[in-house]
């Protein structure tokens, strides 16, 4: 088992431009990833990457190749529409890689999704990977190894750092989910922690947060209230970030004294999470916690 995606997932690409095709090609080259089709308005009837059919609309793709998940590379100003198109076509899982989507577009997407069955990951995220099975996103495949550590993160490249540490420590990952760095996203830490709780393959979780917002505090409250059964190791990026400066991600800003790394770290510690101060200590701390709790991972 794993969460969200596995070797049976039938992947659709939305936005078959240069970046979309490049990463779809890399995904396809990874283990058992099945790329069943692509959607690019105006390119319907063509094929990409040799034999992957292109459709003008998601509805046509659903009819023809029955995708179960879609990854979106549509440029920022069209990305919200692409997400809604996938949602309207009832695709169960959508990962939007696109960065730079206007926040109000996402506010409208969230309303559009109410009562629908789609789960959205991102936007502005690296996507999802279940090592050894499927890669649905832009992460470098080779750093991963199949295993039992679930990883969830607001940051793309910092996720790779965590993955690489875990792999080098001799462990592997069940599924890695990048939830994205924007202020409004489809799936939050609590959603992912809940998925990992129910997954038998996942024995421990690494959660990587950053300054801004209150998603980490909400995760801490959830961990505490539900007496989360699996060990959680956490790092919060931005301990040295100055107030009032937006650190790259639209969501990463300490505003009005709220959203500091210190407050997030304190809330997580209070919930029993092993919080690391140095980003280089994630795997080391995980190994120590697993040993303390007598868990074979």
């Amino acid at each position: 088992m794993s969460v969200l995606i596995d070797k049976n997932t039938r992947l659709l690409l939305q936005g078959a431009g240069r970046a979309g095709q490049l990463h779809a090609k890399n995904s396809r080259a990874y283990c058992d990833t099945q790329l069943v089709g692509a959607v690019h308005p105006g390119k319907g009837g063509q094929t990409i990457l040799g034999d992957v059919p292109v459709f003008d609309t998601v509805a046509e793709a659903v009819e023809a190749v029955a995708p179960t998940a879609s990854m979106i590379f549509v440029p920022a100003l069209g990305a919200a529409d692409a997400i809604m198109e996938a949602v309207a076509a009832d695709i169960p899982l959508v990962a939007c890689i696109t960065e730079g989507i206007p926040a109000l577009d996402m506010a409208r997407v969230v309303r559009f999704m109410e009562g629908r069955r789609t789960r959205l990951i991102g936007p502005n995220c690296p996507g999802i990977i279940t090592p050894g099975e499927i890669k649905m996103g832009i992460m470098p495949g080779y750093i991963h190894r199949k295993g039992s550590v679930g990883i969830v993160s607001r940051s793309g490249t910092l996720t790779y750092e965590a993955v690489w540490q875990v792999t080098n420590a001799g462990l592997g990952q069940s599924t890695c989910i990048g939830i994205g760095g924007d202020p409004i996203n489809g799936t939050n830490f609590v959603d992912c922690l809940e998925l990992f709780r129910q997954d038998e393959q996942t024995k421990a979780v690494i959660m990587i947060g950053e300054i801004g917002g209150s998603a980490e505090e909400e995760a801490a409250a959830y961990i505490k209230e539900t007496e989360y059964p699996k060990p959680v190791v956490s790092f919060i990026a931005g301990q040295t970030a100055p107030k009032g400066k937006r650190m790259g991600h639209a969501g990463a800003i300490i505003a009005g004294g709220k959203g500091t790394a210190a407050a997030k770290m304190a809330a997580l510690r209070d919930a029993g999470v092993a919080v690391v101060e140095k980003p280089s200590d994630m795997a080391e701390t995980l190994l120590r916690v697993l040993e303390e709790r007598g868990i074979q991972a």
């Binding site: 940051s155 950053e210 040295t240 790259g248 990463a252 140095k278 980003p279």
Partner: peptide
């Protein structure tokens, strides 16, 4: 951005 902040830390 996340890795950049972590690098600063």
């Amino acid at each position: 951005a996340g890795l950049a902040m972590a690098t600063m830390d």
